[in-house]
């Protein structure tokens, strides 16, 4: 048990942080929604009703989609684009999908390599892109979830304000949908930009996300 915790501490830390934040969001969101409902002459919602409501689902999904989009683009962009001096980048000249020998696939697979890395055809291609594919699928599903629950949440608000509800097609081209979407995307892209550029010049001793403190600024693709 002690070894399990030690060996998986990073995952466990972020799992706990995720769950605590989600629970915190549910209570804060419920209180905020109830203030608005009372102001509009409505009745307050219980916590259980709130966490199963479209309001909560839309708020959660819109953040999830942007996070998974951020990682999807980061995963794909770093195949082809480099940033000299950044820990988040390959060295200039290494752009692209790289050779089987560099990627340890096909006949270059080693004894500990995953089985599909050694396999031929679609299995090797699928496994070779599995991280991007799963991140992309979660992004699309979250974005779809945001659109469906966002429409429900938006329409409830429309009716509360004595306005007509809109169809799903109208909602996905609405200002509300794109405002919710783009306000999340811009912050994610800024965070990635900051990490790529700041890791050239700044250090965090002992972190995998930083170069060794004494490494030169133009050293690329080296982690501490």
């Amino acid at each position: 048990m002690k070894n399990f915790v030690k060996n998986n501490a990073l995952s466990l830390f972020f799992l706990a942080a995720f769950l605590l934040s989600l629970v915190g969001q549910s209570f804060a969101g419920n209180a905020d929604a109830n203030q608005q409902r009372l102001a509009e002459g409505g009745a307050p919602l219980s916590w259980v009703s709130y966490v199963t409501s479209s309001d909560f689902t839309a708020d959660v999904a819109e953040n999830w989609q942007s996070e998974y989009l951020q990682f999807l683009l980061f995963i794909l962009a770093t195949v082809w684009l480099v940033q000299r001096g950044s820990t988040e980048s390959k060295k200039p000249g290494e752009e692209g999908g790289e050779s089987d020998a560099e990627q340890k696939t096909g006949r270059y697979a080693e004894s500990g390599s995953p089985a599909w890395a050694a396999a031929a055809g679609w299995r090797r291609s699928l496994y070779g892109n599995s991280l991007g594919l799963v991140m992309g699928a979660v992004f699309l599903l979250s974005w779809l979830g945001q659109s469906v629950s966002g429409q429900a949440s938006y329409n409830a608000q429309q009716l509360a304000q004595l306005e007509d509800p809109v169809s799903w097609g109208e909602y996905v081209v609405s200002a509300d949908f794109w405002n919710r979407t783009l306000q999340n995307w811009q912050s994610e892209f800024l965070a990635v930009l900051s990490m790529v550029v700041l890791s050239v010049y700044l250090r965090q001793r002992g972190s995998t996300q930083s170069k060794p403190v004494g490494a030169a600024h133009d050293t690329t693709g080296v982690e501490g």
């Binding site: 409902r37 409505g42 009745a43 919602l45 409501s53 479209s54 309001d55 429900a152 949440s153 329409n155 409830a156 429309q158 009716l159 509360a160 007509d164 509800p165």
Partner: peptide
């Protein structure tokens, strides 16, 4: 009739 959440028209 349209029902969305706790609102209806």
């Amino acid at each position: 009739t349209a029902v969305w959440g706790d609102e209806a028209q």
